[in-house]
């Protein structure tokens, strides 16, 4: 078996997270250095504002520090855990605040290209997700990707794609049902 990580000289996020769980500040900083640009981008995309994205990162990383010992590598991968924490903090912030529509100074949001999904890494979850998203009609797949990446509510998605709210809700619902069936079969 050959394990290839993107940078074999650097400890993986999972290894670092285990060390963080034992109280290593060095590992914590390495983990931050390894993951911060990826996670900050996720927070910025959802909050649309640098100070809010910074708040989300700060709060999420303190959670990482406090809860690293409870992370169970058998139950999920470290990158997914980190993304989840940062997304929830970012979503909390925009939900509480109400998202401002204007986002001056931000690069214009571009919907991910349909075949961008094929660039997803080749991890097991990524391959399964790619395969199952590919089974959805393109316009429905787009709504799911948009909702996740931009952290949009039903009505924000409806505004963005100029579709009735009821249609968006029912498409999302059916897409989730189809994805679940497909993913549980993979």
């Amino acid at each position: 078996m050959r394990l290839v990580s993107q940078n074999e000289n650097v400890a993986s996020a999972a290894e670092l997270l285990m060390q963080v769980g034992q109280g290593s500040r060095t590992a914590f900083q390495q983990l931050y250095n390894l993951q911060s640009s990826r996670l900050y981008a996720v927070a910025l995309r959802i909050t649309c504002r640098a100070p809010l994205a910074s708040d989300a990162m700060h709060d999420a990383f303190l959670q990482v520090w406090r809860n690293a010992a409870s992370f169970d590598p058998a139950r999920g991968n470290a990158e997914a855990w980190l993304v989840t924490l940062v997304r929830y903090r970012a979503l909390d912030i925009v939900r509480r605040r109400g998202r401002e529509v204007s986002s001056e100074g931000m690069p214009e949001r571009v919907d991910p290209e349909p075949d961008a999904l094929s660039q997803l890494s080749q991890g097991r979850e990524a391959r399964a997700l790619h395969a199952c998203l590919s089974e959805l009609a393109e316009d429905r797949r787009r709504l799911i990707v948009m909702a996740f990446v931009d952290g949009l509510s039903h009505s924000e998605v409806a505004d963005r794609v100029q579709m009735p709210l009821g249609t968006v809700k029912s498409w999302i619902r059916r897409s989730l049902q189809a994805l679940r069936t497909c993913l549980e079969g993979t």
Binding site: A41, S54, M57, Q119, L120, L129, V149
Partner: peptide
């Protein structure tokens, strides 16, 4: 959470401002 997490890869990385790490360290 684990099924959708790979979608985060679609967002191109953005360098985090250094003040974030400073603030995290101060909190710790």
């Amino acid at each position: 959470e684990s099924r959708f997490a790979p979608l985060a890869e679609l967002v191109p990385p953005v360098a985090a401002p250094p003040m974030i790490w400073d603030r995290i360290e101060r909190s710790l």
